[in-house]
Simulated assay, not measured.
Amino acid sequence: MNPLLKAEQAVLGSVLIEPGQLDRLDWLAPDHFQRPVHRALFAALRTLRKVGHPAVAGERSAPSLSWVTDAVDEAGRHVRGLTAAYPHTLISACPRSEHAPVYGRMVLEGAIHRSVTEHAIRLHQAARADALLGEVEGALHHADVLTEVLGDLARRWGTEPRPVAPVPVPVTAPLAPSSVRASRAAEDEQFLLAVLAERPGAVDEVVGWLRPDDFADPAHQQLYRCLGALHHRGEPIDRITLLWEAQRRGLLADGTLTDDHLTAICDGVGAGSAEWLGERVIRSSITRTAGASARAVRSLAENEALAPGQLINHALHALGPLDDVRIRWQTANGRSATTRAAPAPSPAQVHAALIRSTSLPGPPASSRGGSVPTPASARPPSRGHG
């Protein structure tokens, strides 16, 4: 049994039985339906209402034959495989037509999970492509698109989009780069560290925007931390002081750094532009971070137990590390850091929240003991829904 399929059938059946239910589903769009036949049929029903079909104005307790047949004819112009008998299947799949907004919420919830999954996959693909080309624009563009989608879905669901860390925070394995990309990134990191260790003042060129986590190799991360510590204390930097700092941190004793690592850095080519090499390192960091964020968002979206509000806010939190490295990359390139502001919500996009926050009638307050609970209309729209 597929609950999402049942919900799509039920919401369509409720509108076929009672066309006036469309007035309570303005926040639901055809694209929110998973099956193409359902998308076409819901679009057809909205079209018939827009042109003023006679069944829309009437008060009927039973389906109007013309309403059903005209909907099939209109939908059949845009999709194949819709038979005249299928609307009757939809009508029989609807337990109660007055529950249409609840069925619509179920459809919207499935659409939210599906949409977030699709955009996370696109971000992951763009990150992998950029990593091969040494670019970052594609990954950053798709990250912006995903953020905008999350904001739009939040407003449709009736909640405020804000980053919230999941509890517990899922552990995402590092993106496994191809051997070509890994070797190229390792070379850039080695060259950069060699320049920083050998050329006086080179650390000043990158310390303001390059972080240890931007290095893919854990040993290189630790060496950059050693260089940063020496720079912070105002001590001289060369291969001997770097080796001494590594020993003081226990990196030689615990095997974090080996003779091969130190030889590759200290005996490497120490000439070149630290700023240029640092930009190459941070570019690789952007694509790695984008890939990791995309996989974290996809993992969240594939968790059907997450309510839409929780999914959206956790996904925004998963994109946070990418925003951080983006800002530092913009600083490295002399660009002003930009932050994305969510557009103001439209009143037409909060009907789902109103449906969700409307409480069922209960017994009078005098018949209940204890304190009087807060009315549903006074609660934040996201309470109980992530």
Rank of each mutant, 00 (worst) to 15 (best):
G268M: 08
T287Q: 03
I286A: 00
A274N: 00
N303A: 12
E279V: 14
S293W: 02
D267G: 13
R295Q: 12
E279A: 14
A294N: 05
V281G: 04
A294R: 02
S285C: 11
S293L: 05
S285V: 06
S285E: 04
S273I: 13
T287D: 04
A296T: 11
G291R: 04
G278T: 05
L277C: 05
R298F: 02
I282Q: 08
S284G: 14
R298T: 07
L277W: 04
D267I: 01
G270T: 09
I282K: 07
V281E: 03
I282A: 03
N303W: 00
S285T: 07
E302R: 15
L300F: 14
S284I: 03
T289L: 03
D267C: 10
T287F: 01
R298A: 09
E304Q: 13
A274G: 10
T289K: 02
L300C: 09
V269D: 14
E304R: 14
T287I: 04
R283S: 09
E275D: 14
A292G: 03
D267L: 11
E304W: 02
S285R: 03
A294Q: 06
A274M: 08
R298C: 08
A274L: 08
S284P: 01
A301W: 06
G270E: 06
L277S: 05
V269L: 15
A296R: 00
S273W: 10
R295D: 06
G272E: 13
W276E: 15
W276S: 14
A292K: 02
L277R: 11
R283E: 10
I286Y: 04
V281Q: 07
A301K: 08
T287P: 01
A294H: 05
G270H: 08
R283P: 01
A292F: 01
I282F: 05
W276A: 15
I282R: 12
E302M: 15
T289W: 02
A294W: 05
D267R: 07
T289Q: 10
V281N: 04
D267Q: 09
G291C: 05
S284D: 12
N303Q: 12
A290W: 07
R295N: 03
A296P: 00
G272I: 12
A271K: 06
G278S: 06
V281H: 05
V269K: 08
R283F: 02
S285I: 05
T289C: 12
E275R: 15
E302H: 10
G278P: 02
S299Q: 14
A292C: 04
V297Y: 04
A301V: 12
A290C: 11
A292E: 12
A271G: 03
E275F: 14
S299E: 13
E275V: 15
E304V: 13
G268Y: 08
S293T: 10
G291F: 00
S284L: 08
V297I: 10
S285W: 02
W276V: 15
A301Q: 11
E302L: 15
R280V: 02
A271M: 11
W276F: 15
S299T: 14
I282M: 11
G278V: 06
V297T: 11
G270W: 06
G268F: 08
R298Y: 00
E279N: 12
A290G: 15
G278I: 05
R288P: 12
S284T: 07
G270V: 10
T287S: 09
G278R: 00
A274V: 08
N303L: 09
R280S: 08
R288D: 03
S273N: 13
S293E: 09
S285N: 06
S293I: 05
